[in-house]
């Protein structure tokens, strides 16, 4: 090889190195389109927001605050008023008592540990604390015994003004329905319980399939009847062979996941589930 050819070889090699270096730098310098977009924000999609009363424990009665026992001395003057009150109260209990047991049994309130404890601290008498457990029982007891109740009037209230239960100051009031946040949490929990049993079919365009299943649940989380397909979307020519399998596996996933373990106080919210089965559920 001549000297001139060696020089030319060196030039060519240098040129290639420079060119590939430039290309690499150029590729690195191209703005990454993903970076230009704004950073993802976590968004929860909920149809209904606000203007709806909600609470974390929709069924619980608010805690009652009772005045400390002031002793019968003060009330000695007031016993007469409660006594004539009882016949007036009598007609009211039936409408109040009867509709309540089915949806919200009074026993539920009792196992809550904090309330009896609070009562015990305030008043060691066990009988009193039972009376205070709920309005319903209280009324029932009152009408049965017909004896004047002890005072629920707090110290700063006007004497003898009322013997109604005073509202708690430190508990949230009950809500009419589950809040959107609760609904989202329930939906996530349902998906979490379905996930181990869902296996999406693979194939061309299989990720486009989306099957919506409707299933009715009883209070224990078990399935009532059989789950049914509400709709199926994303069917194309190439994945139409998969759609039967997709629906079948969706129903099977629901059946395998039952009984669902969901909080009982939101039964109204989850008594009918319509989970969507698509590829993302399995990922």
């Amino acid at each position: 090889m001549e000297r001139a050819e060696k020089a030319a070889l060196g030039i060519a090699a240098l040129g290639h190195v420079a060119l590939f270096g430039l290309l690499s730098v150029g590729f690195l310098a191209t703005p990454n389109p993903a970076d230009l977009k704004s950073k993802p924000i976590e968004v929860s999609l909920a149809d209904d927001i606000a203007l709806e009363s909600g609470s974390p424990t929709p069924e619980a009665d608010p805690r009652q605050v009772e005045a400390p026992e002031e002793g019968p001395l003060e009330l000695a003057a007031t016993p007469p008023p409660p006594a004539p009150e009882t016949p007036r109260v009598d007609p009211t209990p039936p409408p109040r008592v009867e509709p309540t047991p089915a949806p919200r049994p009074a026993e539920r309130a009792r196992p809550r540990p904090e309330r009896p404890k609070a009562r015990e601290e305030a008043r060691p008498e066990p009988r009193r604390s039972r009376l205070d457990s709920s309005i319903v029982e209280d009324l029932r007891e009152r009408t049965k015994a017909g004896r004047p109740r002890s005072s629920r009037i707090s110290r700063d209230m006007i004497e003898g003004a009322t013997d109604n239960v005073s509202r708690g100051r430190d508990t949230t009031p009950p809500g009419a329905a589950a809040t959107p946040a609760v609904q989202a949490a329930l939906a996530a929990e349902v998906v979490r319980q379905l996930r181990p049993h869902w296996r999406a079919p693979t194939g061309p365009d299989a990720e486009k399939l989306r099957t919506t299943v409707r299933v009715a649940l009883n209070r224990n989380g078990g399935i009532i009847g059989t789950p049914e397909i509400v709709r199926q979307t994303g069917v194309t020519a190439s994945n139409s062979a998969q759609k039967e399998l997709h629906a079948e596996r969706a129903i099977r996933a629901v059946q395998l996941a039952a009984p669902f373990n969901l909080p009982a106080e939101y039964y109204d919210t989850w008594k009918v589930l319509t989970p969507n089965f698509d590829r993302n559920l399995s990922q």
Binding site: A4, E5, A7, A8, L9, I11, A12, A13, G15, H16
Partner: peptide, 18 residues
């Protein structure tokens, strides 16, 4: 192919000058 390209350009430089 990269070596072939380098060799090509070496020949191109050398032969064109010659």
């Amino acid at each position: 192919l990269l070596l072939a390209s380098i060799w090509t350009w070496a020949i191109i430089f050398a032969v064109s000058r010659k």
